[in-house]
Amino acid sequence: QTDVLGRIDFVNPAFENIIGRPTSDLQHTYLINGVFEADREAVLSGWKQSLRNKEVFRGRFRIPSQGERDLIWGDVMTSVIETPDKTLGSITVIRDVSRELEVEEALREEQQRAENILGVLQEGVLMVDIEGRIRFANQTACQFLGTEGDCAQQNFFDLVEIWSDDKLLTHNDFLTGGDIDSLYATLKNRNDGRYDIDLTVLHVRQGRYNERMVFVIRDDSERRRQEERLSWEATHDSLTHLLNRRAFSASLLKCQGEITEPAARSVLMLIDLDHFKPVNDEGGHLLGDDLLKRLADLFKDTVRQSDTVARLGGDEFGIILPMCGLERAEALAERIRERVEELRIEQDGRSFGVTASIGLTELVPGDRGPREVISRADEGSYTAKSRGRNAVVVVPAPS
Rank of each mutant, 00 (worst) to 15 (best):
F157G: 09
R133F: 07
D70E: 15
E115G: 00
G59Y: 07
A137M: 05
I72P: 02
K167P: 03
G89F: 06
L126V: 05
V93K: 01
E109L: 13
R133A: 10
R133V: 12
V125A: 09
A106R: 14
D158W: 04
A106V: 11
R133P: 00
I81C: 06
V97C: 07
N155L: 12
V120Y: 06
D129F: 04
E123R: 08
V125C: 07
V56D: 11
E131M: 06
L118Q: 03
V97D: 08
V56S: 11
T147G: 11
T147F: 09
I72C: 02
I63C: 04
V93A: 10
E115I: 00
T78H: 00
I72R: 03
I162R: 08
G59R: 08
K86Q: 14
K167G: 05
Q111E: 13
V103G: 05
D173S: 10
K48R: 15
G89S: 08
E102K: 12
G149Y: 05
F156R: 03
Q143H: 15
A106E: 15
R58V: 08
I134Q: 03
E115C: 00
R52Y: 12
D75A: 04
H171A: 14
E68L: 13
M77K: 13
M127W: 07
L121W: 04
Q49Y: 02
R62M: 13
N155R: 12
I117V: 15
D70G: 15
L168R: 07
R95D: 06
V76W: 13
E82N: 09
G149E: 07
D129I: 07
I94W: 00
G124F: 02
G146W: 07
Q122S: 13
N155T: 08
G119N: 11
C151H: 02
S65P: 10
D75P: 01
L169C: 01
V125E: 03
L168Y: 01
N155S: 11
F57T: 05
G46A: 14
K86P: 01
T87K: 12
L118D: 00
Q154Y: 05
L44K: 11
S98H: 00
L121A: 14
P84L: 10
R69N: 13
A106T: 13
R135H: 11
E115P: 00
N116W: 06
I63W: 06
L107W: 03
F157I: 09
R62Y: 12
E55F: 04
L159T: 03
M127T: 14
V125M: 03
F174W: 04
L145A: 01
C151K: 07
I134N: 01
L107Y: 02
F57D: 01
P84V: 11
S79T: 14
